[in-house]
């Protein structure tokens, strides 16, 4: 019976497509692995080698390919999301940290932290299309829903750079607070959230007709009993309808829940230690957070705004991507 169940489990995804078995892929920066979690049973399915210092992690739009920034290998490693077999790597430029994939699935825009560049890589021909000079220590990457603008944040220059995806030229810059880590658009592209880790704020940039914009307001954080210095915003995720914004607060071990209409903080959810990046399940029922110092991920029930479980993963989890 058990054998049959296993066999069925093996066959079902092949028959029914990826819709039934959602998987979360977690990059473990120190462990040099990716942990795979079943998002129905929340069991760890596998852990596989993913190159040296895997950090940024994302999926092809069809969910079949997993892209991982192998920072110390100076390339993007590619894996089959069913078999976990490694596919040919992509050139990324030195020290890739975070990247964003064009909604069409190609190309990939990669932040090269050591070289003040954003590298644009064609994922089919596996060639570098362009190197775009940006500010010092590029990190956060986002793409507007209409795919016209790519955002890069530079951690030491403290800017959000707006890059035209046709010309690969910087068309606009916005100065934000110290050490911008992450950028995230709302689903309708009307707002851009940029987290500043050391500044302790999230800048809300309202986007105009031409795709650029200026800071409309800044979101600050305050938790009783936690030193203000520990409230360091890193990962940001916005629900597709824009009603809720979740901000990972690093060493404060909390995720802030923000009203997307007013940009006011509503609540703080206690998660694991040094919460870093986050990803929704595709149905947005759950938000998964990577907790770098407690070597686990927390699962947040998005509707209830509650942490419902934590799952041990590899050493120093950094990023997460989820298939449906």
């Amino acid at each position: 019976m058990k054998t049959l169940a296993t066999a069925t489990a093996l066959i079902l995804p092949l028959l029914a497509g990826p819709a039934l078995a959602g998987k979360a892929f977690v990059s473990n920066e120190r462990g040099n692995t990716v942990t795979v979690i079943d998002t129905d049973s929340w069991e760890v399915l596998a852990e596989f080698a993913a190159g040296n210092r895997p950090r940024g992690i994302t999926l092809s739009p069809d969910g079949t390919r997993l892209y991982v920034c192998a920072s110390d290998d100076n390339l993007v490693r590619v894996f089959d999301t069913e078999t976990y077999e490694e596919l040919p790597s992509l050139p990324s430029g030195p020290d890739p940290e975070l990247f964003v994939l064009h909604p069409s699935g190609n190309p990939l825009f990669i932040a090269n932290e050591d070289d003040n560049l954003v590298t644009v890589t064609d994922v089919e021909t596996r060639t570098v299309l362009e190197e775009i000079p940006v500010g010092v220590e590029p990190e956060g990457m986002a793409i507007s829903p209409d795919a016209a603008i790519v955002i890069n944040t530079s951690e030491t220059t403290n800017m959000a750079h707006f890059i035209d995806t046709e010309t690969y030229e910087i068309v606009h810059n916005v100065l934000v607070d110290q050490r911008p880590r992450y950028a995230e658009y709302t689903g309708d592209g009307s707002k851009l959230y940029v987290s500043s880790e050391i500044g302790g704020t999230v800048s809300v940039i309202e986007i105009g007709e031409d795709g650029t914009g200026e800071i409309a307001r800044k979101i600050g954080f305050e938790v009783a009993g936690v030193l203000p210095e520990w409230l360091q915003p890193v990962g940001v995720k916005v629900t597709q309808d824009g009603s809720r914004v979740f901000v990972a607060l690093g060493p404060a071990n909390r995720v802030a829940v923000i009203d997307g209409a007013t940009d006011e903080v509503l609540d703080y959810l206690l998660v694991g230690q040094r919460v870093w990046q986050m990803a929704f399940t595709p149905d947005e029922r759950y938000l998964i957070t990577t907790n770098g110092n407690s070597n686990d991920v927390s699962v947040i029930d998005v509707a209830a705004e509650e942490v419902v479980r934590s799952i041990p993963v590899g050493q120093q989890p950094w990023g997460v991507a989820v298939t449906d």
Binding site: P133, E169, H172
Partner: peptide, 14 residues
Amino acid sequence: LAHALALGFAMLFG
């Protein structure tokens, strides 16, 4: 060269 160009564009647009 690319950097010089970017600088030029930055001065034009940003």
